[in-house]
Nucleic acid binder design. Sequence first.
DNA 1: CTGAAAGCGCTTACAG
DNA 2: CTGAAAGCGCTTACAG
Lengths: 372, 372
Amino acid sequence: MRKATTTIADVARRANVSTATAGRVLGNYGYASEAVRKKVQKAAHELGYRPNHLARSLIRGETRTIGVVIGDIQSPFYARIIRGISDVAQSSEIGLIITNSDEVVDLERKSVELLMDKKVDGMIVSPCDTINAAHLRAAHEAGVPMVLIDRRVRGLDVDSISLDNVGSARAGVADLLRAGHRRIALVAELAGTGGMTLDRIMTTSPPGPPDIHFHYPSWQRLLGYLLAHHDAGIAPQPEMICQVKSYSAKVAAEKAVKILRSDAPPTAIFTADGVMSAGVMAATKEVGARIPDDISLLCFDDMDWMEFMVPGIDAISQPRMQMGQMAARLLMEQISQPDAEPRVMEMVPRHIQRGSIRALLPREEGRGGAAL
Amino acid sequence: MRKATTTIADVARRANVSTATAGRVLGNYGYASEAVRKKVQKAAHELGYRPNHLARSLIRGETRTIGVVIGDIQSPFYARIIRGISDVAQSSEIGLIITNSDEVVDLERKSVELLMDKKVDGMIVSPCDTINAAHLRAAHEAGVPMVLIDRRVRGLDVDSISLDNVGSARAGVADLLRAGHRRIALVAELAGTGGMTLDRIMTTSPPGPPDIHFHYPSWQRLLGYLLAHHDAGIAPQPEMICQVKSYSAKVAAEKAVKILRSDAPPTAIFTADGVMSAGVMAATKEVGARIPDDISLLCFDDMDWMEFMVPGIDAISQPRMQMGQMAARLLMEQISQPDAEPRVMEMVPRHIQRGSIRALLPREEGRGGAAL
DNA sequence: CTGAAAGCGCTTACAG
DNA sequence: CTGAAAGCGCTTACAG
């Protein structure tokens, strides 16, 4: 049974002042003489007074709570983002409500509604659909401060923080090309949502489709891959692109095994995220290809754990926690300045060289196909 | 700018009824004739009325929000627990506020205060100290429903859900002994908090120290290790116990390398958690010991990722998501029945046999030391 | 600097 | 079944 709480009225009575005065010193607003202040604080302390933030929020119209909608807190990607957000929130004594959408629009909608019911001061959303987002638009139009993270939404002009996927994939693949690789496989999800297709992206001359920023990160990373080839004056080979179509390490492994065992196997593989990387790792094991001796591997992921097992993997490391922190800061600024211009930010991942990208030319013969 | 919200008064005016009546139909409490109900609902719909849960909470004394205090959301262990909690919460349209304590009592205290300020209906806590927990006791005495997860607190008699660490470690190590292993290393954190020491646990005859359930899981798993030896009538060798003392894969690796290179190396290693496992994996790699040919490995962890690299590792898999779900259910029951007896629950982990535990006797010579 | 009064948006007895 | 009034625990003008 919850014990009866002591209210401002109780404190006021004991201190022989009005509730208004007690409220002013306890809530730290308005004037109060030092003497009265002392008296009230003493009474409050004696009664163990704790302010009721619910009542305060009802009046002030702010809850000092923010909400987050992400795909799945279990994924290390989101877990770190959340940690970054949480750090900023906790240091400002702001509550953080989290919800999972499982990348399903309907659940995302319900999450947004829950957060609006809770009257959060703002929300950070990793939208699961870049088009089908009427609920996000509605929330924005209702005046709820909002920051998009990792992905953007067409026509939703709010603060956003994502990764420079195109640029960093481009730079990473350029490194592979510079090392002499000419058959570089790309293993990526490249799901068919949002109207993007392999065909469309491959036939759009640089700098690629103008709406690329409203598509999933894996498409952006594919574009970087293509641009790197274009920059080097090398025609990309369509058969090197493994479109996994689902976010599954198992399917990725199957696709990778297939290409590794083909007549013209790749000498390097670029994986677009951690799940694809796990699949490719399993595939290299299955076909008996050693990294980096038989095949170079560049992963768009931190590879935190794989590092233990295969020290030589190159990685494009995503500053996930920092993205979360930045998202939280953008949101808090937006809350205090609701009418500022929306800011579109991209963070640049860090390319971690661990020795997997090796100069290829002198021993082209011995690599790739030969080992399999 | 947040748009003006429409209130019950607005709806009542448009429907030509009193606010009390409008409230009754909109809040779904009390009587209302079908005709009035229709009228009010129509008006509410036309005005886009959304109830203000803040006001409702203030009166009803419930927020339909629960809070969680964990060590670090980034750790896969906690991330899955949170996911389990979140699933139960979201399906009941209950908000979930999460906070990280980083296993520091002071941060845990601040987290608990934040949650109490938010007037959560209850909280799930993974306490970072089994003794120093006055803030938890205070919250409990103030009547806040509480469920402890993973660890318990001395003298705090509330619902708890943890793992049967002693029993499952005992069973796992028994399997190793049964396979013929006699030099089984244990790599565990075994930090010196709470007054438990190696000395104390080794000199307490079975079933071990009576307060073992109020110590960290790694101590409980050590006890299981010792009991398995006792059950088999085999004296455990103190030099086989690697007390890492910090939650660090790096230090674990150092300790493991040392014992693997000793004169009498182990033929099997039992690791007490995922971090220790990662360290041990790195160590086996460093000394060139193959798993399971040179050394058997049993990890108290899911080994989700290592499975990709080393298929043969045996694991004691913790039902983390289920623990989270169970914690949430316990909490919700406790909220609706505040005066029920506290329940102490233990979940039994699943032993996943992947072929690492091999019968040892026929080729004892070739194992362990020989390979190093 | 202090207090009486009104109000945030709901819900809850209490009459009718 | 419906409405007028009071109240949840605060904060906010407005007088004094």
